[in-house]
């Protein structure tokens, strides 16, 4: 019985070898990213789900200009009708909520991979990553929330470069990017885990690239829901109002530091605050004022404004 099976086994091996030889070598090195992915929030969960506190910029290589913009920012601005339906820009979107769908487009004749497209459910963030040469939009073309992305495979790692993104944000507490910002990414897949490493450069608001990683878990049965959005007047306002904080000491910006026992100076951020040795410097910083003092100052601001 055993011997009688040998010709069939050899035939199967031969067919298998022939089939393997027909698979393009480059494609064998690529990862298949297609499918539906759930974001994992085991990293930076407080920043990504409930949202960061205002005044918390520690550990980020932000410039003083970025901190100044963030100190001006008021969360009420998000109630302005013209801002309500904004999606996340591509330089933040993979850190946000919502399922991710990835699919590839191939030329129907050559089967060359022409694009990889991504879609995040929240605000329908749809992105095109060009995998074949594609003309870069000229300087007079409009920018977009997702920008212009080109990609290439290096082994089984997808490298992506993105520019022409509208002025946006790196954190939801007002830390800005301007439209000169660019992003380089690396996508890795290990089984059912997809990792996206983002490296964001912004000559005005970052003193060095901001590096973040985001992970996703593959869904066996994926689905993508629509995400319609319509503007409404949530808050009655006169024309032209822009909710903002004015210059000067602002107790509201210090509350995060005082509540969490972090020196106020450290929460302002900067490249040095990313380094482990910065903890030694924090020990030498002056103590924070008591929380009661901060709350009193905040109440005074509110009272003055209500007058």
């Amino acid at each position: 019985m055993h011997r009688s099976r040998q010709p069939a086994v050899w035939l199967a091996l031969l067919c298998s070898a022939a089939a393997t030889a027909l698979i393009p070598h480059a494609a064998a090195a690529q990862s298949l990213l297609d499918g539906y992915w759930n974001p994992l929030f085991d990293e930076d969960v407080n920043e990504r789900i409930p949202g960061p506190d205002q005044g918390d910029y520690a550990g980020l290589p932000v410039t003083l200009a970025a901190v100044s913009v963030a100190h001006t920012w008021d969360p009420e601005r998000l109630t302005l009708p013209e801002l309500q339906c904004r999606p996340h820009p591509s330089i933040y979107g993979f850190r946000g909520v919502g399922n991710l769908r990835i699919w590839e487009d191939r030329d129907p004749y050559t089967n060359i991979q022409t694009q990889i497209e991504t879609w995040i459910m929240w605000q329908s963030q749809h992105r095109h990553i060009w995998m074949v040469p594609h003309p870069h939009p000229p300087p007079w073309a409009p920018e977009s929330w997702q920008g212009f992305s080109t990609g290439r495979w290096v082994g089984n790692v997808l490298e992506v470069h993105t520019d022409m993104v509208k002025a946006a944000w790196t954190r939801r507490n007002g830390l800005p990017t301007d439209d000169k910002a660019t992003m380089d990414e690396r996508f890795f897949r290990y089984g059912d885990i997809l990792t996206d490493i983002m490296m964001i450069s912004d000559p005005q608001y970052l003193s060095e690239p901001l590096v973040k990683s985001n992970e996703f878990f593959r869904q066996a049965d994926g689905a993508m829901q629509p995400y319609p959005c319509n503007q409404v007047d949530e808050v009655p306002r006169a024309e032209g109002i822009v909710p903002m904080h004015l210059p000067g000491p602002d107790a509201m910006m210090d509350e995060y530091a005082v509540r969490n026992g972090v020196p106020i100076q450290a929460t302002v951020g900067g490249a040095q605050t990313q380094l482990p040795e910065y903890q030694d410097a924090m020990l030498k910083m002056p103590p924070n004022p008591p929380l009661s003092q901060i709350e009193k100052a905040e109440q005074k601001i509110i009272n003055n404004e209500e007058q």
Partner: peptide, 26 residues
């Protein structure tokens, strides 16, 4: 805007790139 604060009415500024409502809002 057409959808998600993008596209729709296009705005030709006096100088610089073509833009949409979101760019003018910023």
């Amino acid at each position: 805007p057409e959808d998600k604060q993008e596209g729709g009415t296009m705005i030709i500024p006096g100088h610089g790139r073509l833009c949409d409502q979101s760019d003018v809002v910023h």
